[in-house]
Amino acid sequence: MIDLVINISLLTFLAITAVAIVRMTNLFAIIMLFGMFSLLTAALFVVMDAVDVAFTEAAVGAGISTVLMITTLALTKDQDEKHPGCHRPWLPLAVVIVTGAALVYGTLDIPAFGDPDAPAQTHVAPYYLEKSIPETGVPNVVTSVLASYRGFDTLGEIVVVFTAGIAVLLLIGGRHSTSKNKKNKREENDA
């Protein structure tokens, strides 16, 4: 019962935040609302007992990505430009409604939350749950699955993160010239 109340209020807040994001034009406020959206999502994950995912969502979605968006905003401008005259909402609205209806129709086939007969629970999950302690001795099954049973996946993920870092460095990173400039300036000042 209490779960239901929490779920409904969290989802209501999510919907309100989403509508507010759509209706706003101040990008700074939108980024803040994005952070709130992620935090609410993290709370929803906690209600669903997915603590590890909630942890990541709160740290990455609400924390780091908000900061990164703000630093990006500092490099651009913080107001969305209005495009007067050319705003025709009907076609996009129709596309959104049809897509949304298709998605809602799709959810009807999804097994109920926590259904023990769901494909996700019957494939390899029972093996992990039964063998995690005797095979790895790690009480947190999420960790043993991530790092041991699915070690290759995690290796792939970390390489993706690494590649993202390299890409950002290549595109906009590096303050080599800056530090050199500073040294030059300092030398000039000394001289």
Binding site: I64, V67, L68, T72, L75, G165, V168, G173
Partner: peptide
């Protein structure tokens, strides 16, 4: 790795545009 990459990305964005 995650710690360093997050900071690399943040420093790159924050240091951008500063002379």
């Amino acid at each position: 790795s995650v710690f360093s990459v997050m900071l690399i990305i943040f420093f790159s964005f924050a240091g951008r545009g500063k002379t």
